[in-house]
């Protein structure tokens, strides 16, 4: 078996999600090649070559791949992927955007968001907002799967010494163009990789009040998340949404503040090791998944928590 893993990166740095995806590839077993498609992404390829368990790094360095436009990268993955038994990418917004497109070009039905590898053709994945876990077997010649990164512990970033090979294929579909992006600037850890996450919901009342959570986060080295209600209300940006249709997190500690615990929110955080809920309504469903529940007004409890840390 031979597996092609699509690296997640920003042309400068290899992202951690790649290491979780390589871990899933190791669970399948076989040679693992990593594709780094980007522009000016040499340093990323060097980093990928050092990752434990990687046989070969393929670098496609071209302006067409600079912004990970799905139209171009999927075509490249479709071209290269023909030679592999498996193609895997992290289930990030980049992976989810590109991978199904590549799969369709190969006439393959992809498997989204795998959380376990049962055998080389059989995987587990959550459906219905995580209320059901399905075991799914693929009959396609090439298995294409996106990987829920929180379900696989990352492989070591160091210790490997893979060969780096240049790929000369330039796939420019010329139907799409990058216009611009607005990326959130933050010194805090990334939501999906943080050891501690503190999230606020509608109970926070406005964006300014999230400053209370930021202060706690600074003391704990935590990332700050939110419920959909808090994002929809404009308190905080969309990239902070945790849940079925937002980001999936599984930190050591998740603190939910002023969040009721709708199934769509639980889908994004219930695999956290320890869950704390602070809510003034003792009937709030969030308490049914919380290890430690505190029935209190958040405007009293959160400042007190910060002071006691």
């Amino acid at each position: 078996m031979s597996i092609l893993v699509i690296a997640e990166h920003d042309n400068a740095e290899l992202k951690g999600a790649t290491l979780n995806t390589i871990a899933a590839a190791k669970a399948v077993g076989g040679d693992i090649d990593v594709l780094v498609a980007g522009s000016g992404c040499g340093a990323v390829a060097e980093a990928a070559a050092k990752v434990e368990g990687v046989s070969k790094v393929l670098v496609a360095d071209n302006a067409a791949y600079e912004h990970q436009l799905a139209e171009n990268v999927a075509k490249l993955v479709g071209d290269l992927g023909k030679n592999y038994s498996h193609i895997m990418a992290p289930a990030t917004t980049t992976g989810k955007n590109m991978l199904p497109r590549a799969a369709a070009l190969l006439d393959v039905q992809p498997i989204s968001d795998i959380i376990a590898v049962e055998s080389p053709d059989t995987f587990k994945r959550p459906i219905y907002a995580g209320n059901v876990i399905a075991t799914v077997q693929s009959s396609d010649a090439i298995k294409v799967a996106s990987v829920r990164t929180t379900a696989f512990d990352p492989v070591a970033a160091e210790g490997g010494s893979a060969a780096v090979e240049t790929v000369d294929i330039v796939d420019d579909a010329a139907v799409s163009k990058f216009v611009g992006e607005e990326l959130a600037e933050s010194d805090r850890p990334e939501l999906t990789a943080a050891r501690v996450v503190i999230s606020g919901g509608r109970g926070m009342q406005n964006g300014e009040n999230f400053e209370m959570l930021n202060k706690v986060a600074d003391k704990l080295g935590a990332a700050v998340g939110a419920s959909r209600a808090a994002v929809d209300a404009g308190f905080v940006p969309n990239d902070m949404q945790v849940g079925q249709t937002g980001k999936i997190v599984a930190p050591d500690l998740y603190i939910a503040v002023g969040i009721s615990g709708a199934i769509q929110h639980l889908a994004g955080m219930k695999d956290s090791k320890v869950i704390v809920a602070i809510n003034k309504d003792e009937e709030a469903p969030i308490f049914s998944v919380a290890d430690y529940g505190l029935v209190a007004d958040l405007f009293d409890a959160v400042p007190e928590l910060e002071a006691k840390l």
């Binding site: 959550p126 075991t135 799914v136 077997q137 049914s288 998944v289």
Partner: peptide
Amino acid sequence: TKTLKVEPPAERQAGIK
């Protein structure tokens, strides 16, 4: 693809207040 089986996710232990 074929769904071989479906099962509930691991239940969380009820916690304390």
